[in-house]
């Protein structure tokens, strides 16, 4: 856990995701485009974890930033003919951050249902705009014709998705590094304080509202970058990046993985997207049924998600082990 009592050294288990990603790259070259997609959604889930898991902001509208980032990156290419990938990323980040400040400053004074509705309405509005402003966004057909120059003028986005995968992996690594620093910092500890007890945070003189706007903006920026990555790897933007559905999806992924645990954001998208890729095309009904049941089960029985269960099992095993060894000791 984060905070003043935390041990912030990187544990060996924290290297596992990166080792796994490396192995994936070499062992499963035919699945690299799915892999890139997973990496992007991990980054997106990470941004959501920052506000939901740490600061406790409940939102159904996080897709607003993801989608806006995706469209911005695309439009920068189609309208302004700027195909430099880093400029596209920066533009997406900036626009998403702007939306984050603007909407955060307005809606973060509210709570609970009202906040939920406001976040939902904002992403719904964006969806409506994207749907209607056909000249800009391609409307329901999606925005095609997005061009992305080779990265650093050298690494071309290839057909097999090798460049895309590595590009997303680096972006995710940077994102993970930033988020990890953030949550272990005094700022992160302060966010946990807001989540735990807002009244108390007010009473120790924390400008809670501004802090929330700040973290909301940081998270929005990250989500925007994730959206832009999706555009760049697909060279296409569809309407499905905005609205309730992607917001719900990412929320579900994070919850399945485990919220407020940093690595829940890694596990959730992996499990969700692979299962989706496998099931959704052939048996969409079973996919919905399965994911729905799983979600209900997690909410009712395992609020910590998959990682929470792993923790619990480990604790149980450790205490069993201790019991045994102490029993052995006393037997002697």
């Amino acid at each position: 856990m984060s905070g003043y009592s935390a041990d912030t050294r990187i544990r060996w288990t924290e290297w596992l995701p990166w080792v796994a990603a490396g192995a994936f790259f070499f062992l499963l070259p035919e699945y690299l485009s799915l892999g890139a997609r997973i990496l992007i959604f991990i980054l997106f889930a990470l941004s959501l974890d920052l506000i939901l898991g740490y600061a406790g902001i409940i939102t159904l509208g996080h897709s607003a930033f993801f989608g806006l980032g995706a469209y911005t990156a695309g439009i920068v290419s189609t309208q302004l003919a700027i195909n430099e990938p880093f400029v596209q990323l920066a533009a997406a980040a900036a626009v998403a951050a702007l939306l984050g400040v603007a909407t955060g400053a307005v809606i973060l004074r509210t709570r609970a249902l009202t906040l939920l509705m406001l976040t939902l309405a904002i992403t719904a509005i964006l969806l409506e705009v994207a749907n209607k402003a056909t000249w800009l966004t391609g409307g329901a057909d999606g925005l095609s014709g997005v061009k992305v120059d080779p990265i650093l003028g050298f690494f071309r986005f290839d057909l097999y998705g090798r460049t895309a995968f590595l590009y997303c992996l680096i972006a995710l690594f940077l994102g993970w590094w930033v988020v990890r620093r953030l949550i272990y910092s005094p700022f992160g500890a302060m966010l946990t304080g807001i989540r735990e007890n807002t009244t108390r945070m007010h009473a120790i003189g924390a400008p809670v509202y501004w802090r929330l706007v700040l973290v909301y903006t940081i998270s929005a920026t990250m989500a925007g970058i994730a959206g832009a990555l999706l555009t760049q790897t697909n060279q296409f933007v569809g309407l499905n990046v905005l609205g309730l559905e992607p917001s719900g999806d990412i929320l579900v992924m994070l919850i399945l993985g485990g919220v407020g645990r940093l690595y829940g954001a890694f596990i959730g998208p992996v499990v969700y997207l692979i299962a989706q890729d496998y099931l959704a095309k052939q048996y969409p009904e079973y996919w919905y049924f399965g994911i729905g049941t799983l979600l209900i089960a997690v909410v009712l029985f395992a609020p910590g998600g998959i990682l929470g269960m792993v923790d619990k099992l480990r604790d149980k095993w450790l205490s069993l082990y201790k019991q045994k060894s102490s029993a052995r000791a006393s037997a002697r």
Binding site: L116, G292, L295
Partner: peptide, 22 residues
Amino acid sequence: GELSQVLFCIGLILVAMAVARL
């Protein structure tokens, strides 16, 4: 909390949609 309720409902919706479609 609200979050649990919201998530639970999303799960229920998904299940119901699947059943209806079947």
